[in-house]
Amino acid sequence: MSTATDTLSPDHRAFSVSIEQPVFRMGVADGRWNLIRVEWPIALIEVSASVGTFVLRFELSGYPAQPPTAQLWDVNANMRLTDAHWPRSKGGRVGEVFRLDWNAGTALYLPCDRVTIATHPGWIAQMPAKLWRPDGSIVQYIEAVYELLHSADFTSPLVAAA
């Protein structure tokens, strides 16, 4: 018997399976994140913050063997979230990860992000526990963002979301 995932590419199939796993579904049920849509290899996932929500636009080609990369996204305008709408920091880790000066804001400065780890090979030895795990799931990345958006360092963007 054929299933809907039989016609998908291997990376798309792996992602589809991962978002059906209990750890992802529990995050949805708890209001931590929500899958908005998938247009392979792009997936939009909304992540809650202590104030508001943010949408991550994931590029997932090669998933899970290749790490994902994500940027903050404005779903209504279908473009990268404007600078004034980005999370702000009180001087800690939020500011280090949500860097407008890093890769023109098209990737988050996280050791599980494809673009960032490719340009920081030293992180492989410096922070192996935070690197992308090809045997894991998208939840690794989403949880890292969720934790930052609920940390004491997070403060609301300069401009509230519309």
Rank of each mutant, 00 (worst) to 15 (best):
G62D: 13
Y63W: 07
A65T: 15
Q66A: 13
P67G: 08
P67M: 00
P67L: 02
P68D: 05
P68N: 03
P68H: 01
P68I: 01
T69P: 01
A70E: 00
A70G: 09
Q71H: 00
Q71I: 02
Q71K: 12
L72Q: 09
W73C: 06
W73E: 04
W73T: 05
D74Q: 01
V75T: 14
N76D: 13
N76E: 14
N76H: 10
A77W: 05
N78S: 15
M79V: 12
M79W: 07
M79P: 04
M79H: 11
M79F: 08
R80H: 09
R80W: 00
R80L: 09
R80N: 10
R80S: 08
R80V: 10
R80A: 10
L81R: 10
L81C: 05
T82K: 13
T82I: 11
T82C: 09
D83K: 08
D83V: 06
A84V: 06
H85G: 06
H85Q: 11
W86S: 01
W86Q: 04
R88Y: 03
R88L: 11
S89P: 10
K90Y: 12
K90W: 07
G91D: 12
G91W: 15
G92N: 07
R93I: 11
V94T: 06
E96I: 02
E96N: 05
E96L: 09
E96Q: 13
V97R: 05
V97C: 09
V97F: 09
F98W: 05
F98K: 01
F98T: 03
F98L: 04
R99V: 04
R99F: 06
L100G: 15
D101A: 15
D101N: 15
D101H: 12
